[in-house]
Design a protein around this nucleic acid. Structure first.
Lengths: 223, 223
DNA sequence: AATTAAATTTAGATTTGTCTAAATTTAATT
DNA sequence: AATTAAATTTAGACAAATCTAAATTTAATT
């Protein structure tokens, strides 16, 4: 079955929002997709007839099993393309998202699989996010939120949950990329901010908002 | 300026048909694009207001200078992606066209240029067609049509003008790919067909139609 | 030159995805 | 429980790209 770019974007957004709530409500989707609630309602009706979402008037929606498969296929494509752009074409990791948003809608399944082979069937993208395999299986990585890590412990950055351009730009400024090793020197009760040592490099102060969006794991990460 | 996929496809088709005639008429475009004459008329009006084509009612159309630049940019993308698919992802050269048709509409200019760098800024695609550079300049190759080549002369296949799936499949069957060296053993007056020796391999008979669509150059081709 | 045929355009309809504004339903608060 | 507020849906409109069928223009032929 083939889907329009628009349908795919809705599915992807619902998949994303389902991480935070069992049911995704119309307004949240409208905000996420930068559109109006009325448009969302229209699309949800359509996705329902295609059996991609469960949806009852006024009750919000969630993906069906089929919908989830479709979402995972799109996520897979997105992340593989991001990795390709960074590793092969030498893009900066903070600039590949919008291009991958286009590439992820190229339909050929053979293309995705050959791309994956070409990249060595990787498990994580340049932001540290896991890449679902052919069957939609997501590799696991035992990671913790930086805000839950005690001071003086060396950890490795493994993913960034808020991937806004602003956030990525800021991390870049502090020389914090995937795989970077850091240590919390001090936590300030006052505003939740933390003093961070970027191993072998600089020291910086980052806000609580940032620590909540950075995920880390113990020392060496294996891909 | 940004164009829709549909607009880009029209521009590309007009560019293609302009090789054969000064003015491209509506029906020819409709056939090429697999659509109806009425739809073509609608689009031509639109492309005219965008100054991409010159068009007068009932008189056919041709690309403006700007239109040509746009067309060359699309051709560049298409051919770079084809080369990527064949050289890097290991697709067969006769199966990449439909995928490149999708990839050519990805907009990022930076992407195209980095892709070109990654591929070593090549001048020819897997079908032997020249790849326009950043500025739309097309590399030349002094090639001749196979039907104009005398017998007993060894030449190298450099491009295929009719790239229908059927044609490509047939060439593949005879082990004729880009760079293949061949020699005409005999030409039959009766039907224009030719007996061909594929150097170091098989002998085969190909029709006049095929010889008219194969282009060759002397012995060794340099890329 | 008149007639016929072919090519092209117009007019009006359709589909997809979107929108605004009004109506309806659900949730929150007095 | 009644009222207000927030969320959601409906109704109707719009733009892009397409289509069919009818009208028009150009080209070809008698």
């Amino acid at each position: 079955m083939i889907f329009s770019t628009s349908e795919e974007n809705y599915i992807k957004s619902i998949f994303h929002l389902q991480q935070f709530a069992e049911l995704v409500n119309t307004n949240a989707l409208a905000t996420e997709m930068n559109t109006r609630a009325a448009s969302v309602t229209d699309m949800l009706k359509k996705l329902k007839t295609k059996k991609l979402v469960q949806y009852e008037k006024y009750q919000g929606c969630k993906l069906t099993e089929v919908g989830k498969k479709v979402a995972l296929a799109i996520v897979r494509k997105h992340r593989l393309w991001e990795l390709f752009l960074v590793d092969k074409l030498r893009f900066d990791w903070d600039s590949v998202h919008p291009i991958a948003e286009e590439l992820e809608h190229i339909s050929s399944e053979e293309l995705v699989n050959k791309l994956s082979d070409f990249l060595g069937n990787p498990s994580f993208d340049p932001h540290g996010d896991p890449i679902p395999d052919k069957n939609g299986k997501i590799p696991l990585l035992n990671q913790q939120c930086l805000s839950d890590i005690p001071i003086k412990k060396i950890v490795t950055i493994s993913s960034v949950s808020n991937q806004s351009a602003q956030m990525l730009e800021m991390l870049k400024h502090y020389h914090i990329v995937l795989g970077t090793q850091i240590m919390i020197l001090k936590k300030f009760e006052f505003d939740g901010s933390s003093e961070i040592k970027v191993i072998k490099k600089n020291v910086c102060i980052i806000s609580e908002q940032v620590t909540k969006n950075l995920f880390v794991h113990d020392i060496q990460k294996k891909k």
